[in-house]
Nucleic acid binder design. Structure first.
Length: 440
DNA sequence: CGACCTTTGAAGTAT
DNA sequence: ATACTTCAAAGGTCG
């Protein structure tokens, strides 16, 4: 019962061939914005099975070492993941513009500071073994940035954010480790500031957002990301299992690649680098919520309003995700809707009731209830099995008691955990499971 | 100017 | 083992 390897290159084919997306007009990180003609995931699509199979590391992960420079020789550019390009050294030798920096080649996974990333990233010049020689404890990016032998034209890894970028300085003890233990706090801080920030690899949903955001924005009057994200969240839930699987697989590969490029990197490294989120907000409605609700109202009234295209039950939108009919009514996957346990039934609830796009606990409870109702029906309908292609999402540690056992198994590439704070398809709709969301 | 908002998922820490 | 927290993207909004 192995989750079938997705033929990413073929299945992911150019979804985003349409409208130029406003996203590339962003002034936030213009450098990294992908061109509208480029499928945002195109870079990832280079992960063809030929180049990247789960069983074996991508060929570019074991680059030859240039005998002259000792720098890993880059593979053919086409083999490079623009998201996780090779070492800067290798990068610097790439004859063609780098994927993650060059719009024509693809969208970078990670944003760069407006000023660009000037200094080379020596750590990336090391492969895993090299880095281990330098430090078996610290991430490659923890290594002193200066490397005389490296070309200054080194291009930063997209996962790396210039240390200049604000980021609340984490406790030196946390970051610097023993290497800096003998240095003065000032020195430590300085070096810390030089340290590139390796970002977390994007998860499936983030990848999906990256791809779909531009479209949603293009077709909606809403511009606020918070509102867009809510819509995207719903769309995500409405994706068929196949569609989601695509992103889970991509995310899995991203993590794999990330872990190979940054063997010592840990998510912990980034802890505390962002301002702590406000705990108790949600008391007042945000404007985005109001906007979304307006959109919802428009949807309910079927008037031409923001995002109507994205929310209709039968014909969600003309987005690629649904263009092949897999989103809501994929005939091949009767249980496809189960791929989104938290999703209210696209075909049932969306029109029946306004989107529950507010963070109000009570409203979330409603959402859960709706989801529960939908799931109950769906679960009953899908109790016949079809495990081979069952979405993994139901395998989360929830009130599984009432779930069909057949739904509990999950493909390896799917998430196996479900947080209580997430919108839950709680069949028994326990308010308790929703309360914790307020802490998010 | 920078945190907040909002989403899901992964991975971390805390209990 | 479970629950909770943080960060990843994004861009308008707000203090």
């Amino acid at each position: 019962m192995k989750w079938p390897l997705l033929d990413v290159p073929s299945s992911a084919t150019v979804k985003d061939t349409r409208s130029p997306s406003p996203a590339h007009l962003s002034n936030k990180v213009p450098v990294v914005q992908h061109p509208h003609h480029m499928h945002p995931l195109t870079p990832l699509i280079t992960y063809s099975n030929d180049h990247f199979s789960p069983g074996s590391p991508p060929t570019h992960l074991s680059p030859d070492i240039d005998p002259k420079t000792g720098i890993p020789r880059p593979p053919h550019p086409s083999e490079l993941s623009p998201y996780y390009p090779l070492s800067p050294g290798a990068v610097g030798q790439i004859p063609t513009p780098l994927g993650w920096l060059v719009p024509q080649q693809g969208q970078p996974m990670y944003s760069l500071p407006p000023g660009g990333f000037r200094h080379p990233y020596p750590a990336l010049a090391m492969n895993a073994s090299m880095s281990s020689l330098v430090s078996s404890r610290f991430s490659p990016h923890m290594v002193a940035p200066a490397h005389p032998g490296l070309p200054t034209s080194g291009i930063p890894h997209p996962a790396i954010v210039s240390p200049i970028v604000k980021q609340e300085p984490a406790p030196p003890s946390l970051i610097s480790g023993s290497l800096d233990c003998e240095k003065s706090p000032v020195t430590v801080k300085k070096e810390e500031e030089k340290k590139p920030h390796v970002k977390k690899p994007l998860n499936a949903f983030m990848l999906y957002m990256k791809e779909m955001r531009a479209k949603v924005v293009a077709e909606c009057t809403l511009k606020e990301s918070a509102a867009i994200n809510q819509i995207l969240g719903r769309k995500w839930h409405n994706l068929s299992r196949e569609e989601q699987a695509k992103y889970y697989e991509l995310a899995r590969k991203e993590r794999q690649l990330h872990s190979q490029l940054y063997p010592t990197w840990s998510a912990r490294d980034n802890y505390g680098k962002k301002k702590k989120r406000k705990r108790e907000k949600q008391l007042s409605q945000t404007q985005s919520q109001q906007q979304v609700q307006e959109a919802e109202g428009a949807l309910a009234s079927k008037s031409k309003k923001p995002c109507v295209q994205y929310l209709p039950p039968e014909k969600p939108c003309d987005s690629p995700a649904s263009s092949h009919g897999s989103m809501l009514d994929s005939p091949a996957t009767p249980s496809a809707a189960l791929a989104s346990p938290a999703a209210p039934a696209a075909t049932h609830s969306e029109q029946a009731q306004p989107l529950s796009l507010t963070t109000k606990p009570e409203t979330r409870a409603q959402l859960a209830l709706h989801s529960a109702a939908f799931l109950s029906a769906k679960a009953a309908a899908s109790s016949s099995g079809q495990m081979g292609s069952q979405p993994p999402l139901l395998s989360r540690p929830l009130p599984l008691g009432s779930m069909p056992t057949a739904l509990l198994a999950s493909p390896p590439s799917f998430p196996t955990t479900l947080h209580a704070h997430q919108a839950l398809p709680v069949l028994q709709a326990q308010p308790l499971s929703l309360v914790t969301k307020s802490a998010h």
